[in-house]
Design a protein around this nucleic acid. Structure first.
Lengths: 198, 198, 198, 198
DNA sequence: CATGAATGAGACTTCATTCAT
DNA sequence: CATGAATGAAGTCTCATTCAT
């Protein structure tokens, strides 16, 4: 049978295709239920080709997670710059959440992997929590909320909400990033807001 | 090891031991990383013995999940009876959460499996959400919270909080069931409570 | 749990029961598809009990076949005594076949094993063939049949007929032993018979 | 042995080799006594390679039987076309038997499987019987044989003879296809033939 | 660059058989 | 005499990975 390079084939294109399909399948079926044979089949390539571009199944999966982790961290860092844009307090938080949700919705499958499927998701969430605690402590120091609830618990709770609502409302397109961020802030900071508004 | 019955061996004991070890390993390493060989090894038995008491790895895992689902459902149903104990509104919710958390902390490993590891965990959470929506609609119909936030989003958010805080604060013994339930209610129903208290 | 001898139990009875069930199952499902666990289950006993009476699965199966072989040999030998009863030629053959068929129909399951299922069935049939050749050579020496066909082929053919018709007509109770023996002789010795009858 | 492709290896060749060895072993030792490990060992390959070309042991066995069944059916159908060649009555039957025997001797191992070893052999023989009954009824309607013996019994008997003689005389190369077909017809249709010849 | 062909390692499961009671 | 409990040995199958072309 014919072997060797295909007409019209191009290394970078194949790699990108494999990556896409891998993300798709990992996010749909999970790491263990996704076989290399599945990935290459859906990319219309063969198994050795996979190893041309990726060291191993595990490496690929880890790289994907690292990428997710890094980009998400980046989002948060840059959203802190909103301070320069004059946003403070709850507005800053709401803005950050919006940015995160926008990132999620732009990378739904990667999100499913990095935020839900992978073992590394634990680290990602811890990162979010600690960043959030930092913001809470600097931005809402004197709020009612923090007087009544422990900052850590509040942050963990909020990330929990983000986790679940992303799955049920965001990635299903039921709620937009802005709207979801707003709803969450409403739930968590109603007392502050009512004071402000009154 | 010689064949045949061991000195002092007893079926029920072996089965229970295997079950315990299985739950332990499944909860620690997950379904796929837990091999039957691991389970029997940690129970000091051999593989055929596993099949003496369980139909298959998958069946065992599913049964475990079903058990978790059923018991959790039961907890919720019976905690509704607190209405008869005069609990209403937020108190009722707080009581229900307390019961759930107590169940979780009594079955930490089973919880890790049924609430986090299994595919069926989706169904479990959906069940909790829909039960919670029902309570919200009947008990907090006229509250400020429901005026401002969609009941479904509120419920999903709350279950998200439960999910995360169980992992980070409850199962790590940082927070007690009662305390955690109270903190969550504080976060979610601060406005109501302040009205009540004022 | 209760262990040890059952009330009303009796060694010989258990052995006989196991033997019956074994024959039944071997004949229905074959050697490999019949498990010791199946045999004891249908005898309402347990696996160790099986080994109380039989050395092993294979031994039991072989014993069964030996028994079949011996009894069938015996049938043939004693039917030779029909000579003393005055039977000769085709009548003798028809009588022998009748006896064989009667034995088959009295032991249908053992027959299915020893004549069809077992490897040893080869030997059994060879025995029948060589006995038959002997009879043909002594009783039908000058017949037309033997002039036209090789005695060995005739004998093999006849045993082939016996083999198939036993399965399709005798053990299904479509045809009686006597009738079947008669039909076979009709087919095989029509020329002789017509001479006789004319 | 190192992993990966072997020098000079070729899929089709491997598959064919495995098939041959499988047929050989199945026919010699039977389905249950033939292990996949035996098959690949005698083909100098490894177990996963088997699954590269066949779905499972059972599937392979069934496919083999189906193939046997189909080809044998085909033989019979096409030998009916001998009618066009002017063959009628006993000659037609003898021709058909010859064709069958030729097929058997060209595929001795497949025959051992499909005609003796497999459960499906029952169906194969039933097919032969019903085809034969049809021929008898159309070609030998007024013969002496059919007057004296039941057509079904005659057909079953004849197939029994074919079954046994194939094993003892054909596959052992004691008798040629033509010769065996002739002998069988001699045995079964002696009366007709003698009439014809006289 | 890409493929066809192959395999090492290991997972799940089954079954005849055997102790200890 | 009979059982409950257990296991050695082995079989089928899968999957990530790797040669040779």
């Amino acid at each position: 049978m014919a072997r060797g390079r295909r007409v019209n084939s191009c290394g970078e294109k194949s790699k990108k295709l494999l990556l896409e399909k891998a993300i798709e399948l990992f996010s749909t079926y999970g790491y263990h239920q996704t076989k290399i044979s599945d990935i290459v089949k859906s990319a219309n390539l063969t198994q050795p080709t996979f190893y041309l571009y990726f060291q191993s199944k595990e490496t690929l999966f880890n790289d994907l997670n690292e990428k997710f982790h890094n980009e998400l961290t980046e989002i948060f860092s840059s959203s802190t710059n909103d301070i320069n844009n004059g946003k403070i307090g709850i507005d800053l938080i709401q803005g950050s959440l919006t940015h995160i949700f926008e990132f999620f919705i732009e990378n739904p499958n990667l999100t499913k992997i990095g935020f839900y499927e992978a073992e590394q998701s634990t680290a990602v969430k811890e990162m979010l929590v600690s960043e959030l605690i930092h913001i809470l402590n600097t931005q809402l120091k004197d709020s009612n909320v923090l007087k009544q609830a422990d900052a850590t618990i509040l942050a963990e709770s909020l990330i929990g909400s983000v986790e679940r609502l992303t799955l049920t409302n965001l990635l299903t397109n039921k709620t937009s990033p802005e709207q979801l961020a707003k709803e969450i802030c409403m739930i968590y900071f109603a007392t502050e807001l009512s004071l402000v508004h009154s």
